[in-house]
Design a protein around this nucleic acid. Structure first.
Length: 369
RNA sequence: GGCGCAUUCGUCUAGCGGUUAGGACACCUCCCUCUCAAGGAGGAGAUCACCGGUUCGAAUCCGGUAUGCGCUACCA
């Protein structure tokens, strides 16, 4: 019947053919072996209205409502019936659910009344959509909260971000703690328009929350990600005391906890893999780079204390001595020592890595040139 | 097809009759600076989907159009 209606471009739905069966007709159908369902006889005229915290006063014409099934042919109640009875028995005061239920709400209201129940307060929330305005689904952008956790997002950042989907406090407040959220959230300020996920903004917000973590907390939360994502050749268990020295160097550089392994990888791997070209800073040649690294290597080997401060006190004058810009000398050293052109501050990085490792890496860079 | 809802900078949004249409992300410039970040200071970016109407005055109220979305099960 349904297919037929669609084909004829008729509104699909129950045609009420059995709404007014007589006793005889009823008996006859049963004699034919038909197992009936029980439907809700919706009033044919008038309108049903209810007030929704988000939607305001909502009004539906009764003649657009169809006679929904209350009891299935197997005798079990449908969701629509069970839902109402259950909510009533549980003394539910507020029904807060997705906007897609707004259309069936008048049926529910009518049912509450038919059963002599007092309808609860309704609040229909806007749907969440993907960045491209498409519906969020498992195969399209949407991920479970566990998935976000795996991707390195902090629970407190997620809570803050999610709260802002479909709701806002005012025209400027964005960052709110859990307590502030609890204190200021209100259904009245929830909007009807579908909210959509802005991943870039989530990344930014997560970064804000990561930076607000105290060092030890950041370390503890990062550990599982390091265990999971650092290359397999890095020996486990990971040296926590060593990591404790590394973490402050990448703390403000991580947008997610999942970034941490990538940002710190060179602290753990023995073999650095990089393009030799990267050693040669702008305005320099193979020769000048080789010379600079050689002199630096020699002085580093003799430096009394290998800490960040001493390193800086030694390397800055060296740049002048070599007639190089600091960026040129430091750039060459950075690539030699980290294998990257973008990395945490050089002196602190060197201090954490230690003299032996730094010298080895410079030697290896010299071999390449 | 029917019913309902929505449409404001690139993006997420504030706004509920009178605002220079506010904020955030992203972007650009400058400062800081050994790179990258972070931080600071600026900048650009919106004829408020379109067409009418009401009003002294409309992003805000009312029609219509367009587009998008939801619902339209013997599923929950």
């Amino acid at each position: 019947m349904r297919a037929e209606q669609v084909r004829r471009k008729q509104p699909p739905g129950y045609d009420r053919r059995c709404r007014e069966l007589s006793e005889e007709e009823h008996a006859q159908k049963e004699a034919e072996g038909l197992t009936p369902v029980v439907r809700f006889k919706i009033p044919l005229v008038g309108q049903t209205r209810f007030s929704d915290v988000v939607w305001g006063e909502v009004k539906f014409e009764n003649n657009t409502l169809d006679d929904l099934v209350l009891l299935k042919s197997d005798g079990y109640p449908t969701y629509n019936l069970a839902n109402i009875v259950d909510d009533h028995k549980m003394e539910i005061s507020h029904v807060i659910r997705g906007e897609e239920f707004i259309s069936t709400t008048p049926h529910h209201v009518l049912l509450y009344k038919a059963l002599g129940y007092e309808p609860p307060q309704f609040a229909h929330l806007p749907r969440l959509m993907g960045t491209d305005r498409s519906k969020l689904s498992k195969r399209h952008g949407a991920v479970s909260i566990e998935e976000f956790h795996k991707q390195g997002y902090l629970p407190e950042a997620m809570l803050n971000f999610l709260a802002l989907l479909g709701w806002s406090l005012d025209d400027k407040t964005e960052l709110m703690t859990r307590q502030e959220l609890i204190a200021s959230f209100s259904l009245e300020r929830v909007k009807k328009t579908p909210a959509s996920f802005n991943r870039e903004k989530l990344d930014w917000m997560n970064g804000v929350y990561i930076r607000s973590l105290d060092p030890e907390d950041f370390l503890q939360r990062s550990l599982p990600f390091l265990e999971r994502d650092l290359p397999p050749e890095v020996v486990r268990p990971l040296p926590v005391d060593y990591i404790r020295q590394i973490m402050p160097l990448v703390h403000e550089r991580a947008k997610t906890l999942a970034d941490v392994p990538e940002l710190t990888r060179f602290f753990f791997t023995v073999q650095l893999d990089y393009d030799t070209e990267l050693l040669i800073a702008k305005g320099m040649t193979v020769e000048s780079t080789h010379h600079a690294l050689e002199v630096a290597r020699q002085q580093l080997a003799e430096l009394p204390a290998f800490d960040a401060e001493s390193l800086e006190e030694m390397l800055r004058p060296l740049a002048v001595e070599l007639e190089l810009k600091t960026g040129q000398l430091f750039g060459a050293l950075r690539t030699a020592i980290t294998g990257q052109t973008a990395a945490p501050p050089l002196f602190q990085t060197m201090a954490v890595l230690g003299r032996e490792t730094c010298l080895e890496r410079i030697d290896r860079a010299l071999d390449r040139l």
